[in-house]
Amino acid sequence: MDIRTLIIAAGLLAAAAPVAAAPTAPNQNATGKALILVPLTLTKIDDLSFGSIVPSSVSGVVAIDATTGARTVAGGVTGIASDPGNRAYFAGGGSPSQTVIITMTQPAQLTSIAGDTIPLLALTLQGSPIKIIDPVTRTFFFGIGGIIIVNADQPEGIYGATFTVTANYQ
């Protein structure tokens, strides 16, 4: 019994003996990293406006181009040149080359304070709904246009509606 105890003790003493360190080169370099995240933003610059128009006894259409902001009138509608309307314009920011998907909710109509309505045929987005954030400026821009149908003898008034624009960052 005493012999076993000595053998175990001898094994523990051998394991506790110091080990010689291997030589290393002096002045080893290390690197550090940091990940900086840019806040994701979407800002409205301009509202969509169809401008001032004069209806007639014939229905007509007013369209605002999403890319240029130019207004087109057709049918029994006359556009007032001093108020030609404009596209809605948005700017966004985020990480370089990040993909952003733009979606919109379209109201069915524009409504006046008196409760009269003008049907909103469509909201149109400039280009593809998939936007890529510029790698240098870290921004992206896009316009939204639309098409309304002005009824024959449409009552006068200021018509409006709200639509939501969402940027889904991928």
Results as ranks from 00 to 15, higher is better:
residue 97 S to E: 09
residue 70 A to W: 07
residue 53 I to R: 03
residue 84 P to K: 06
residue 98 Q to P: 08
residue 60 G to E: 03
residue 58 V to I: 14
residue 74 A to R: 00
residue 88 A to I: 11
residue 68 T to N: 00
residue 68 T to A: 03
residue 64 I to L: 07
residue 55 P to F: 03
residue 56 S to C: 04
residue 53 I to K: 05
residue 89 Y to W: 13
residue 78 T to A: 02
residue 74 A to I: 03
residue 56 S to I: 03
residue 92 G to N: 13
residue 75 G to D: 14
residue 86 N to H: 15
residue 93 G to N: 12
residue 65 D to R: 01
residue 80 I to H: 08
residue 56 S to V: 00
residue 74 A to C: 00
residue 91 A to Y: 04
residue 66 A to T: 07
residue 98 Q to V: 11
residue 83 D to I: 08
residue 58 V to K: 09
residue 76 G to H: 00
residue 55 P to E: 08
residue 72 T to M: 05
residue 70 A to H: 09
residue 88 A to V: 10
residue 81 A to T: 06
residue 96 P to A: 09
residue 99 T to S: 15
residue 94 G to M: 11
residue 63 A to I: 02
residue 84 P to M: 07
residue 71 R to A: 14
residue 94 G to E: 11
residue 79 G to E: 07
residue 94 G to N: 07
residue 98 Q to T: 12
residue 77 V to Y: 04
residue 81 A to I: 01
residue 60 G to V: 03
residue 89 Y to K: 14
residue 69 G to K: 08
residue 53 I to W: 14
residue 92 G to I: 08
residue 59 S to L: 10
residue 99 T to W: 06
residue 54 V to I: 15
residue 54 V to G: 02
residue 96 P to V: 07
residue 74 A to V: 05
residue 83 D to A: 15
residue 77 V to F: 01
residue 89 Y to H: 13
residue 79 G to M: 10
residue 77 V to D: 02
residue 68 T to F: 07
residue 60 G to Y: 00
residue 83 D to K: 10
residue 94 G to T: 12
residue 95 S to V: 12
residue 92 G to V: 09
residue 99 T to L: 13
residue 98 Q to S: 12
residue 86 N to C: 05
residue 70 A to R: 10
residue 79 G to S: 13
residue 80 I to Q: 11
residue 86 N to D: 09
residue 75 G to P: 09
residue 61 V to L: 15
residue 77 V to I: 04
residue 91 A to T: 15
residue 66 A to Q: 06
residue 65 D to P: 02
residue 93 G to E: 12
residue 87 R to S: 13
residue 61 V to Y: 03
residue 98 Q to N: 09
residue 93 G to P: 12
residue 70 A to T: 07
residue 63 A to G: 04
residue 83 D to L: 11
residue 57 S to N: 14
residue 80 I to C: 07
residue 58 V to F: 12
residue 54 V to H: 04
residue 69 G to H: 07
residue 61 V to H: 04
residue 99 T to Q: 15
residue 66 A to Y: 06
residue 94 G to P: 13
residue 73 V to W: 01
residue 92 G to H: 14
residue 61 V to T: 15
residue 93 G to R: 13
residue 64 I to Q: 03
residue 64 I to W: 08
residue 92 G to Q: 13
residue 56 S to Y: 03
residue 64 I to G: 10
residue 75 G to R: 11
residue 92 G to S: 02
residue 64 I to F: 05
residue 80 I to W: 02
residue 87 R to K: 15
residue 68 T to P: 08
residue 80 I to L: 15
residue 59 S to E: 14
residue 80 I to M: 05
residue 66 A to M: 04
residue 90 F to G: 09
residue 97 S to R: 05
residue 97 S to C: 07
residue 54 V to N: 10
residue 68 T to I: 09
residue 92 G to D: 06
residue 99 T to G: 10
residue 66 A to C: 05
residue 98 Q to D: 10
residue 57 S to H: 08
residue 70 A to M: 11
residue 69 G to M: 09
residue 59 S to A: 11
residue 73 V to C: 00
residue 78 T to K: 01
residue 77 V to L: 01
residue 90 F to K: 00
residue 59 S to N: 14
residue 60 G to S: 01
residue 96 P to C: 11
